[in-house]
Design a binder for these strands. Structure first.
Length: 332
DNA sequence: AACGGTCTCAACCGCGGATGG
DNA sequence: CCCATCCGCGGTTGAGACCGT
């Protein structure tokens, strides 16, 4: 016993749209809008089409400012990053790519990007730096994090989702920065331009990407946790383990992104450290939870700090904090 | 040129959630 | 609270384009 169909399939046209139909639909919507009711629109617009078909045609093809054609590397990067964070939530991902539709991104992922991952899994020297975060370093098997069969349901993955009718990605990101969501705010891994000091990366004094030092992760987040009581009260004064895991993942993505940017044009090996800059015993989780003693993390390579850091990767194409530290959540 | 296999992407399907009576 | 209706989403399909032989 299935659900009743939305329209009489014998009375509506199906299949590809003709230019005449496109023109009728475009003219009608530009004149009257959809009137808040797609089902009744075809009749009013003089189209023998299902309302859902009209909606789809408008949203995916006819509406203004739709971008067709190849995706840029930057768009690839955003898709990869968001897919790693939230899985196949195409509409949310599309919201961060102006002019792209969820359908476009879904098709692009299924036909191109997924293959990019597969090909990178069989090559230890992938040319795609962004592909690496999705490789399981142990099995060399590619999995889709947070797919429908993922181990972490989204409701628990984002403990704030049920309290927010906002785009959960934005909500999450805004909470990382400790501020209200801002529609104009750029999505992670780009820092909030209004508050660049809150969570940012900068090059340390001795930033030689071929070895001696590296990057500083500047974190004033714990201050915000202390100062933003309404945020804290959302979770009864404490941030959940899940929330902190998410923040950790987001930070790793940001660090990866920064390293990728900083090492453009550099083809040699480099090492990537991960430790408390001053005390040598902190880690990202401590920093996020506010239990660490410092707000900086050195992302350096060899040199004076090398004895206390753990080198996570030796080759740029496979070096990724996300790969090494984030995947346990996905694969557990 | 002809054919078969592969790829692309617009369109469809059905489900879950939101909404309103 | 229940039910009907509609919307939006993610998964899937299949016609046509493309490619290799």
């Amino acid at each position: 016993m299935g659900r009743a169909p939305c329209c009489d399939k014998t009375k509506v046209k199906r299949g590809p749209w003709s230019p005449e139909e496109d023109s009728k639909l475009r003219d009608y919507i530009e004149k009257y809008g959809n009137g808040g009711n797609w089902i009744s629109l075809p009749l009013k617009a003089g189209l023998r089409r299902c309302g859902k078909s009209c909606r789809l045609r408008w949203l995916n093809y006819l509406r203004p400012n739709i971008k067709h054609g190849d995706f840029s590397e930057e768009e690839d990067r955003i898709i990869f990053s968001l897919f790693a964070a939230i899985g196949s939530r195409w509409s949310i991902i599309a919201a961060h790519l102006p002019g792209r539709t969820d359908n476009d991104i879904k098709n692009y992922w299924n036909t191109k990007l997924r293959k990019k991952l597969l090909s990178s899994s069989s090559s230890s020297h992938s040319s795609s730096a962004m592909a690496s975060p999705y490789l399981n370093p142990n099995s060399q098997e590619v999995k889709r994090p947070l797919s429908s069969s993922a181990t972490i349901p989204f409701s628990s993955y984002n403990p704030y989702a049920e309290n927010s009718n906002q785009d959960p990605t934005k909500y999450l990101i805004s909470n990382i920065n400790g501020f209200e969501a801002d529609e104009k705010q750029m999505v992670f891994p780009y820092s909030n331009p209004n508050y660049p000091q809150d969570l940012s990366l900068s090059d340390s004094n001795n930033s030689n990407i071929s070895g001696t030092s590296g990057f500083l992760l500047n974190n004033n987040i714990s201050d915000h946790y202390n100062n933003h009581t309404s945020f804290s009260s959302d979770v009864n004064g404490k941030r959940s383990e899940t929330m902190m895991k998410q923040e950790e993942i987001m930070m790793m993505m940001m660090i990866d992104h920064h390293i990728d940017q900083r090492t453009k044009g550099y083809s040699g090996d480099f090492t990537q450290g991960y430790h408390n800059y001053y005390n040598g015993h902190g880690d990202l989780k401590q920093m996020i939870s506010g239990t660490g003693t410092n707000s900086n993390i050195n992302m350096g390579g060899s040199g004076s700090s090398s004895s206390s850091i753990s080198n996570l990767a030796e080759n740029k194409s496979s070096s990724s904090l996300l790969q090494h530290k984030c995947l346990p959540y996905f694969y557990s």
